[in-house]
């Protein structure tokens, strides 16, 4: 239970992949113009990251480690992710056209979303989430899920701000990336207050 709470708070607030660690910045800046698209992207990412965390853990522990091929981790994982994205896309197209219509456009972008690969690699690294502890299959999957929720949170918050800013009298030269970057920077300041929260809750040493 403790582990899961640490993962939940840690991945969403304290070590938010976007706001506290600089992962997934490209989709964060690229798909945050509208709240609705941000939500769609967030859901697609959540779906893929959760599945990818599950599968890459299995790949690591049942293929790479027994065969002593750990140095091929990057290749193996990114291949899993690319294939997974393709499979999810095709499956959605056949099984749930309505869901495909909502999420389909975002799926190809997810392959190059570095949060997916970063989470998968962190999950199988000893001590990445809790000192001296390697995550099990369930915890890894949950970790991926929470990281994705954290990504979605940051994405939707930025989208909300950008939508509002469209109606304000922001100078022309701030529009697009420069403005989004500075907004993201100010948002990141707000996320800094959560530092040390886990130690305070006596969840980690």
């Amino acid at each position: 239970m403790n582990t899961f709470l640490v993962i939940l708070i840690g991945q969403i607030l304290i070590n938010n992949y976007v706001m506290c660690q600089f992962y997934g910045i490209c989709p964060f800046l690229g798909v945050s113009k509208k709240v609705d698209t941000a939500l769609g992207m967030g859901m697609a990412v959540t779906f893929v990251i959760t599945l990818a965390s599950f599968i890459t853990w299995l790949v690591q522990n049942f293929i790479l480690v027994p065969l002593e091929l750990e140095y091929l981790q990057t290749i193996a994982f990114i291949l899993v992710i690319a294939v997974l994205v393709q499979v999810v896309e095709n499956a959605l197209k056949k099984l749930s056209p309505s869901l495909y219509q909502a999420l389909g456009v975002y799926l190809p972008l997810i392959t190059t979303n570095c949060v997916v690969l970063a989470v998968a690699q962190k999950n199988v690294t000893e001590g990445a989430i809790m000192d001296g502890q390697t995550l099990g299959l369930l915890a890894s999957t949950f970790c991926g899920f929470c990281a994705a929720i954290g990504f979605t949170l940051a994405l939707v918050l930025l989208a909300g701000i950008r939508e509002r800013m469209e109606q304000s009298n922001m100078p022309k030269w701030m529009e697009g990336f420069p403005g989004a970057l500075i907004m993201a920077g100010l948002m990141a300041i707000a996320f800094m207050g959560f530092g040390g929260l886990l130690q305070g809750l006596h969840l980690v040493g």
Partner: peptide, 13 residues
């Protein structure tokens, strides 16, 4: 993190 975002934003401007 905030320093990175803001510096890059200002440089881009």
């Amino acid at each position: 993190v905030p320093g990175g975002f803001i510096t890059l934003g200002l440089m881009m401007i």
